[in-house]
Design a protein around this nucleic acid. Structure first.
Length: 410
RNA sequence: CGGGCUGUAGUAUAACGGUAGUACGCGUCCAUGGGGUGGAUGUAGCCCGGGUUCAAUUCCCGGCAGCCCGACCA
């Protein structure tokens, strides 16, 4: 019921936001700016975050992920083991002091936490592999946050860590994760614009893999091979790398892109300092082989808006839209209420605009909020035989009978 | 962290060394009822501190906040 939704739309974009994602999400009432790089998720925004999270969760579960929740306040001693507590190593910590004088950090990533936790439970090859993950608020004291929710000081992500017996076992999972990630981007509607991108790796792998979504407002520059459907991040764009990947320089297209995910082979980088070992079949101790798989949920929401909008507002893909149907009553609340009840009964998510405002305002708000299907009930539509339905991404509307509409919608 | 810029009602903006005007919003009323409808009326504001000055929202300094470019990063 829109009259019960406390958020309101705005005609004008706030002057301190330049990025399209923040402008539209704020104008439409999905997020509120708390301070630079920090945004509140409002009811409509949470709907979207949850839709995206559900898709990500589903794909993670399908490849064996086990959801849990690591703490936001992080133990200094744990971080000292990997050497990443020091400000010279990680300069964007948010650290806080406890009443007893000791320090704690606000989680800015999860490798240490997982390594430390899993050490308690992994002791035999029988305990491996294991793939725990969580959805979590992450804090980074960015010197410069920018681009609305694409790069905040506080953001929401999903991070999965793989713990495998050896590199071979790790590689099998890594490929599965890669495929799962691609599935995620397809499901949220940006698959056709998202490229598996080779980026800088680490000690244990030549490359890490990013998932980059083509978008002019992106921060990254990538070089795409359209035929192979892969790309190379500018940061590793050298002749040697191109040769490695068997790519021809003159066939690559340079594009701006948003990094919407990153998977990484960690190897024993963390299992070593945490002494994360298991006993193999012969009773010999082996280091666990790790990988990390991150995806910024809030950033993904922003990226989707950057990709799917027009001059009137957001155009949500169906899979992540806050509601499936936007029901507009133009002076026909009684009829609209009946339709609303029917749709609710069918489990359809409906935002019912029952407000006593002008037709123009309802249309404008509907376009701005961007729900995929708009259904108008008015004297005019009833006289024409029912309700007028129009997809947000199409310009033509049509009138169908109420019965027909309710029967067909799924 | 370097460089640049900006802070005026809830939002977006204007003007001014003599304390502020407009639009939207919000309240009330009338009209209207398919693209932010028309009219009346009300409501609400100069980021903080210091300095210059008879007088500062305006000029100067400092602070805080925000934006942009670069560096860094999911």
């Amino acid at each position: 019921m829109q009259s019960k939704l406390f958020t309101k739309t705005r005609k004008e974009a706030p002057k301190d936001e330049v990025s399209m994602n923040a402008q539209l999400l704020i104008r439409a009432g999905f997020i509120n700016k708390e301070m630079a790089g920090v945004y509140d998720i409002l009811p409509l925004g949470l709907k979207v975050i949850n839709k995206i999270s559900d898709i990500v969760r589903d794909e993670m579960n399908k490849i064996g992920g086990i959801e849990m929740k690591t703490s936001v306040l992080q133990n200094k001693e744990v971080w000292e083991k990997s050497g990443r507590w020091n400000d010279d190593v990680v300069d964007n910590w948010f650290k806080t002091e406890l009443k007893n004088g000791s320090e704690a950090g606000l989680s800015f990533t999860n490798e240490e936490a997982y390594s430390s936790i899993l050490k308690q439970y992994i002791s035999s090859y029988k305990d491996l592999p294991v793939y725990p993950y969580d959805f979590k608020e992450i804090f980074r004291n960015e010197t410069r946050s920018k681009s609305g929710i694409l790069r905040g000081r506080e953001f929401y992500w999903k991070a999965l860590y793989s713990f495998s017996k050896d590199e071979a076992e790790h590689n099998i999972f890594y490929e599965k994760a890669k495929a799962a990630y691609q599935k995620i981007y397809e499901r949220v509607g940006i698959g056709h614009l998202t490229y598996l991108t080779f980026a800088s790796g680490g000690t244990f792998s030549k490359f890490s893999h990013e998932f980059q979504t083509i978008c002019d407002s992106g921060e990254d520059t990538i070089f795409i091979d359209e035929n192979k459907k892969i790309a190379v991040n500018k940061e590793v764009f050298t002749d040697e790398v191109l040769e490695d990947l068997e790519l021809e320089k003159n066939k690559l297209i340079e594009k701006k892109a948003i990094e919407v995910g990153n998977i990484f082979t960690l190897g024993t980088k963390f299992s070593k300092p945490f002494d994360l070992k298991y006993k193999d079949e012969k009773g010999e101790e082996q280091l666990v082989f790790m990988g990390s798989y991150g995806i910024g949920i809030s950033r993904l929401m922003g990226a989707i808006v950057e990709v799917f909008h027009d001059e009137k507002g957001i155009v949500w893909p169906e899979s992540v839209a806050p509601f499936q149907v936007h029901l507009l009553s133009l002076g026909e609340d009684g009829q609209a209420q009946k339709i609303y009840d029917e749709l609710e009964k069918k489990g359809i998510e409906v935002l019912f605009d029952d407000r006593d405002v002008s037709a123009g305002e309802k249309f404008a708000d509907s376009d701005l909020i961007g729900i995929p299907l708009r259904v108008v009930v008015s004297k005019k539509s009833l006289a024409a035989g029912g309700v007028e339905i129009k997809k947000r991404n199409e310009s033509e509307s049509k009138v169908v009978s109420i019965e027909e509409f309710i029967k067909q919608i799924k």
